[in-house]
Amino acid sequence: MFSFNLQRSGSMKLAMAGLMTTTLLLSACGNNNAANNEAAATTAPAATTEATTAPAETAVEQTVTDAMGHKVTIPANPQRVLASYLEDYLVALGVTPVAQWSVTNGTMEYLAAELKDIPTISYDLPLEAVTSFAPDFTIVQSEGTVQNGLYDQLNKIAPTYVLGDEVSKDWRKSLLKIGELLNKTPEAEAAITAYDQKAADAKAKISAAIGDESVAILWLVSKSFFIVDETRSSGAVLYGDLGLKLPNLVTEIPAESRATWNPISLEKLSELTADHIILVNSDGADAAEVTDGAIWKGIPAVKAGNVHEFGRATSWLYSGPIANSKTIDDALSSLVK
């Protein structure tokens, strides 16, 4: 099968191999410099202005222990905070992050206005990108993000605090904790009070409008449906804060095997008896393939015309004081006629 022509002189092949490597090399050099210059141009001014804007408040360093047991010394007045996927909390506390979370196909679009000029950073926190933003304090949401030695490397760049899954699944606890870390506890408490007031008002209005009708939140992405339970993101808002009734399909999933967003097949959805459906559509126009089908059209809430659709730019998939507040606005506009 592999009888290569070994009689031929090797020098030709050698030359080819050499040529290939040189080409790669040259192209690597060329592009690399351009990209680097750009990075330097954007970071340099930021780094110089930072020193002048430091307020003269009398705050002291604090040493705290994070969710993974690291002892973290937070600078007295962190000026360049990096908290990927926790931007919602920073914005609520009036802190501008140095970079915002992103994945290949986008950012947290519901915060687009608040984070308009903030550069993006990939969700997996590439070390050199982190270094280029020169943070002086980093907050990481989950233990999983920094496993296998990444924590130690991040911590070399700037003191790094891991919030932990236990805290971060409750946005109130997260906000209070982040407020504490950034010397902004009063702001955090005020934000929660304001939110609770808003939620209580909305609860009264919605209850007057739909009584005890149930509402399902479905997320459609890549033609697959996911359903949220009462513990996370918009589910926590609707079922927890607004006191709405969970749909049958969620209560049927055993509590211990529930995920944040539970995958659910279209066939199973035909058994959904919810009175209202909030459809979070991440597929845009492609969703028609599913929503024009007989199964979808046969769901009682769809027949009754009680589908309220939201795009991926809305806050339904996220969690945090701002996301949840926007979710309440959306719920009011769709459920209260």
Partner: peptide
């Protein structure tokens, strides 16, 4: 050795 040197210069940050 050559690629080693190039690699040391390659990355997100300018060096």
């Amino acid at each position: 050795v050559i690629i080693f040197i190039v690699s040391m210069n390659t990355g997100f940050m300018r060096l």
